[in-house]
């Protein structure tokens, strides 16, 4: 648990939005991208590009995210 508190926000994962773990908060991922379902029924980003939004669980604004996901660790194994 101490590892998540101190390093969890930097854990590599597939999400396109950042995680918010810290010593005082156990908040996970903090946003979404918006998509439309294609004729096949599958969800795809509107316009073909992921536009992500982040916000909080309080009164904070919804803002476009500039988060760049770090590359996947080699072979998908934990560093």
């Amino acid at each position: 648990m101490e590892a998540i508190d101190s390093k969890g926000a930097t854990f590599a994962n597939s999400a396109l939005v950042p995680a918010g773990y810290s010593k005082t908060s156990h908040v996970g991922l903090t946003g979404y991208w918006v998509g439309k379902y294609a004729p096949t029924g599958d969800l795809a980003p509107i316009g073909g590009t992921y536009v992500t939004y982040t916000t909080d669980s309080g009164s904070g604004a919804v803002v476009k995210s500039t988060y760049k996901r770090p590359a996947m660790p080699a072979k998908g194994l934990p560093n």
Binding site: L16, G35, G41, G76
Partner: peptide
Amino acid sequence: AGVLYNAIGFSPVPATTDMTDEYVKFF
């Protein structure tokens, strides 16, 4: 599938059909 067409949806992770995404491909 046609019923879903044009519905709006939300996800924190990439589209599951997006094989250009390294995680989606790997997983």
